[in-house]
Write a protein that binds this DNA or RNA. Structure first.
Length: 293
DNA sequence: ACTGGATCCTGCCTGC
DNA sequence: TGCAGGCAGGATCCAG
């Protein structure tokens, strides 16, 4: 599942193929993603240059020469496949075997949007569950747009701190798990990294968010920052040249300490507990009751 | 105002 | 072997 680190890895992977290039042709094969593509989507993109490729929380932002920003969200299963001018294919941040699947842009199952670029690259958006979406927003209106209005703090930015967590969570009865998933407070964490951050901070997922002490809030801010930064680094280390498409690591699962590890020993040195699974708001949380409180 | 639950979608896994 | 059913999850909408 693409959360912030995965999106950042995808951004870095797409950068060399897209930034500075002009979109010569855009094909919207399925306009019915999570939200319908805007009218004239392809026409508003064609002929435009990609000036830069940024990220906010789990959103990718392609700044275009037209003044529009192409806003992209990967949802659950969204991924990009890059076909280099020489025909090699790769997915940034997630390496998949392409044998028998055809090359990018030639009608693979669930290929929904195809970008052809002036540098010879083809970038294809593929999304089995269609939870992802794309939108076009004038740059001047980006912050006020429906995607970003009310969005919380960027967890890898400088603002995230113990005192900020304290004030955001003050008087909240909701469990920490729910508060951390709320994109209006901190934007970019998903189900996986919430479990990971709470474990690192030694905080129980059911603790009411408003009960954090200053020390605990500082530990949580540090844990969030650390777990995301480490995952971004792990993702970066998996980015390779487009010609190398073997290796199927998936999304850095090797670095999860508790997520999807029910029944395994708690990885905290000297703890001796076991990882348990708990369902909160219909979502799995993984934690250790021995060292998290 | 806040909170939790249902919803969208499809692939994968489990159990009969 | 095949099929039904459950599960996964981000954002949004809805109900209590």
């Amino acid at each position: 599942m693409p959360e912030l680190p995965e999106v950042e890895t995808v951004r870095r992977g797409l950068e060399p193929a897209m930034v500075g290039a002009t979109l010569t042709e855009v094909e919207a094969r399925r306009p019915d993603l999570r939200f319908p593509l805007p009218p004239d989507f392809a026409a508003r993109l064609a002929g435009r240059k990609v000036v830069s490729l940024g990220r906010r929380a789990k959103y990718l932002l392609a700044d275009l020469s037209s003044g529009d920003v192409l806003v992209m969200h990967l949802g659950m299963t969204g991924r990009f496949l890059i076909a280099a001018p020489d025909g090699a294919v790769a997915a940034p941040g997630e390496f998949v075997h392409e044998a028998g699947e055809g090359s990018a842009g030639e009608g693979r199952r669930h290929d929904h949007v195809v970008f052809r670029l002036s540098n010879g690259f083809t970038v294809t958006y593929n999304d089995a569950r269609r939870f992802g979406f794309m939108d076009l927003v004038p740059r001047a209106g980006l912050a006020a747009s429906r995607h970003f209005r009310g969005m919380g703090v960027e967890p890898l930015g400088n603002e995230l701190s113990g005192p900020l967590i304290e004030s955001l969570f003050a008087r909240k009865a909701a469990p920490l798990k729910a508060a951390l998933l709320d994109q209006r407070l901190v934007a970019g964490l998903g189900n996986i990294y919430v479990s990971e951050a709470l474990h690192r901070a030694a905080l129980a997922p059911e603790r009411p968010a408003g009960t954090l002490t200053p020390k605990e809030a500082a530990a949580l801010a540090g844990a969030i920052r650390d777990v995301l930064a480490e995952a971004v680094e792990a993702g970066g280390s998996t980015l390779r040249d487009y010609r190398h498409t073997d290796g199927s690591l998936g999304y850095f699962q090797h670095c999860f300490r508790v997520y999807d590890r029910e029944g395994e020993p708690c990885p905290t040195p000297g703890c001796g507990g076991r990882v348990e699974r708990l369902v909160q708001s219909g979502r799995s949380t993984y934690w250790c009751r021995t060292c998290q409180s």
